[in-house]
Design a protein around this nucleic acid. Structure first.
Length: 114
DNA sequence: CACCTGACATAAT
DNA sequence: AATTATGCCAGGT
């Protein structure tokens, strides 16, 4: 998959798997850190966050489609609140994902990997 | 190899 | 409902 060919060769395998899996989330849908980890047969929720924090997002990985299990936005570009998060919300809105009071209706937008 | 850290999740206050 | 404490697992130092 050429989406990831520009990332550093030193990128850990687990991180790569996160990105690959994330690429399967369609536009207009979102997933949670937990679901993503589970889809990789792992419980490393937090490691998933680390992976995204590494930010290979910029080019082509849709990091903004990953939110918290309670429907809250989570973080973006290394931050958990602030202008970057606001931007994340804007990106989601642009894809048709409704964000109300910093919350997402997971029942409606959650993507199922299985 | 022994800690420390975190874009989390859940249970307990 | 809002806050706090605890558990999680891979990476980094």
């Amino acid at each position: 998959m050429q989406h990831l060919k520009t990332i550093p060769a030193s990128t850990p395998t687990f991180h790569r798997r996160v990105y690959e899996q994330l690429l399967t989330v369609p536009r207009g849908k979102v997933t949670t850190y937990g679901d993503l980890a589970h889809a990789l047969n792992s419980a490393a929720y937090r490691a998933v966050g680390q992976a995204l924090r590494n930010n290979p997002c910029a080019p082509n990985v849709p990091c903004h489609r990953v939110v918290s299990s309670d429907g809250r936005i989570g973080g973006f570009n290394g931050q958990r609140e602030g202008p970057d998060v606001t931007r994340k919300i804007a990106l989601l809105a642009a894809e048709g994902v409704q964000v109300t009071n910093g919350r997402i209706d997971l029942a409606r937008h959650r993507h199922d990997f299985f």
